[in-house]
Design a protein around this nucleic acid. Sequence first.
RNA 1: GCGCGCUUGGCGGAAUGGUAGACGCACGAGACUUAAAAUCUCGAGUUCAAUACGAACGUGCGGGUUCAAGUCCCGCAGCGCGCACCA
Length: 868
Amino acid sequence: MTANTNIPVATFDFHAREPYWQTRWAEKKVFEAPDIPPADKPKYYVLEMFPYPSGQLHVGHVRNYTLGDVVARYKRARGYAVMHPMGWDAFGLPAENAARERGVHPGKWTLQNIATMRGTLQRLGFSLDWKREIATCLPDYYGQQQKLFLAMLAAGLVERRDSSVNWDPVDQTVLANEQVVDGRGWRSGALVEKKTLSQWFLKITDFAEPLLDGLKTLDKWPERVRVMQERWIGRSEGAKVRFALHNPPPGYDADQNSVEVFTTRPDTLFGLSFIGIAADHPLARKVAENNAEAQAFIEECQRTGTSEEALSTMEKRGFDTGLCVVNPLDPSQTAPVWIANFVLTEYGTGAVFGCPCGDQRDLDFARKYGLEIPSVLLPTGQDEADFTLGKKAVTGDAVLYNSGFLSGKSTKEAIKAAITRLEELGVGEGVTNWRLRDWGISRQRYWGCPIPIIYCDDCGAVPVPEDQLPVTLPDDVTFETPGNPLDHHPTWKHVNCPKCGSAARRETDTCDTFVDSSWYFARFTSPKSATPTERKAVDGWLSVDQYIGGIEHAILHLLYARFFTRAMQKTGHLDVSEPFSGLFTQGMVTHESYSDDGQWLYPEEVEQRGDVVVRKDNGKIVKVGRSEKMSKSKRNTVSPVEIIERYGADTARWFVLSDSPPERDMEWTAAGVAASGRFMQRLYRLVQAVAEHDEASAEHGEAGDDLRRVTHRTIVAVTEALEGFSPNVAVARLHELASALGDAEGKAGAGLSAARREAAYVLIMLISPMMPHLAEELMLMLEPQGAMVVERTWPEADESLLAVRKVTIAVQVLGKLRGTVTCAPDAAKDDVLALAKAEPNVAKALVGKRIVKEIHVPNRIVNFVVAG
RNA sequence: GCGCGCUUGGCGGAAUGGUAGACGCACGAGACUUAAAAUCUCGAGUUCAAUACGAACGUGCGGGUUCAAGUCCCGCAGCGCGCACCA
């Protein structure tokens, strides 16, 4: 390093110096991770959820990546070999929309966006290993994904099956549930149809149990994410029960004229009131063949939307099929079969048995249609003689009665006994049911990873042979006609069957983009290898020690990634079972909104004037809305690029770390950013003064001890704050150290110079994860010949300076603070108590009182319990 | 409906059961300046007292445990998030 003789005078010139340091870091390759973790250091893999290249980085990204960068830089300083990569979740619909609306090719649009956003990330000075950058839309990546797909197919983890989908007849595409608004396609406005298509499924349900059990090992995940996943997987224990039809419709023989239901409460079978079947249950369809009313009811059920809103307001309705079943545990008992609009086809067997006394919904339904309501559950503590079922079903602790061999048993015992009997009778069995469904990944879209399959009339679905991979997307596609451009392409899909050589066609569906993000963390460990992973690299670096991202991915992305990891373990591509050992979910960045007569205004169009906010153009007072999630529609957005231009990267980084704990939402305020900018310049002046006035050769002396103690306590406090993911607390402690250094400025005394230099040095090191550019600049001033900050290690606190010379002890009388006394640390109890009693205000409070008990917590508190 | 989380000054927030309000923002006063900005210093929970010593109250509400509760336990309310006709 050369001495810098051109130190700027009073301010940190971030415009010039931030890019300078970014270049220096890149030259030294300090952020490049080795392919295989070194043996002499512990490894640490820190990863932030990679962005979709929408065009511009937003401040939510800045918060996310700054948090990750603080972790990465801190761990590096602590001696870890750090892996901190970045990439792009680059497939997806917005690129196709851009193509339709602006005529730009999705690939070109995406790559331009990546270039812009990469530039912004680089200006923020993140310690990323850019050598490992990946974009999921490039054949380098998605070709390997195709290999994974085929490996999973070979391992039996992929299946092709028919499935009912939302079909937009105008756009000729499948819509996700989220894209169906009021029964219409979100783009075309066309009435959405249910259509059965052949789709590729990943068998995530094969791993339902391990995925559930694995949650228990994830002790560094937020509790609520684990709970959400647990409920999503939705294990439920119960029984399948087959009810024989007393009067089956002619020609119906599905499973020997019976209806199979799933129940978690086989103990209440004697409380059978009715059987409810879903509108598209085979039996319902059979009934409808000869019954126009039934047909009409079924159609009505299917018309009702499946949106949450529709469901929550929907009335429970049913249609009596006239059919009747026999209770398998009591052949003398029969019950009617109803088609019910609240029974889901997709869950369980698409049929339920209604037990009104134990289930509120069943009770409401039975009452509404005047069905029989046998009472079989006696609430604990109630007497059979005087218990009558009212409006509320019995859902608490209860004992069975009126239930034959189950009578007198508790719910738990009765469930066991009922299942045993059902199995003996051959009419049912205990089963575990899961809410989790297999993952349909087929999408009728262009901008996604092609599914590497060829259809041959003779050979069926044939995997594309390895030597023909990757199956790349054709560039010459048009978006004028609705539907999948791959399907319209004149030549792309026409190929010969790899098996028999006869004319065949390619699969034109592409993968759901969630597939792309399900294994990118593994690919980062060998981003250019000719196989999906390199075992030494992937097994060495995984799992990700700290994964950081938004809570909105709590279920789908994180569950899919966990599934993929297990699937790749099975296909031999890696050997860990959980991808992310630590997870941190950060809050959103919010901003006030401004409106004038219903017209939304951008923050830069208004300014604060006294207590009001006015338009810059005409001075008119605008309405200030509450701080909420930034959105284009409310124009309450802030551009990171403008912030960097005006205040510098370090200010932006410091601001997003200040004040709010990272898991909570933070409010973006202009005043807050300006304050961060002022603090940055203050640090510059402080260290500049030290560098100019305090000789490096100075020695420590007594006058500097107070400052030294603050310095070393700050090391401990900031280290703890960063370990505990509380950068906001670290920021507060660093303000204190800066103030202490400021207070010591210009004072004379033996050792003060050395203490100031030490404080400045520590300050630089401790801010460096948050404000890395400023830290380098300050270090250059303080030690012009020294190494860069990124090459130095985290400071260690000197234990002898952590011990305090005096402690202030609070003195309470009956738990109320009456004064404080100062004494030596670990002073004898008797001395402290004597001192405490002598404190005037304490003495006053003790007058005329008898001390019953004296509590002394060393170095903390004295409490006199008094009477009288 | 079920589950989870949150509730502390004007605001963001801090606080291993041990001096509540650190630190910052906004605010006020002062210094510097021809002036402004920047910078620096000081003040500030509320009420009473206000020259001061101080006192009472105070972490959403009501209970409890404890010498001591923002923190632990029970109940309630409000807000937010997630899931939701899941049998």
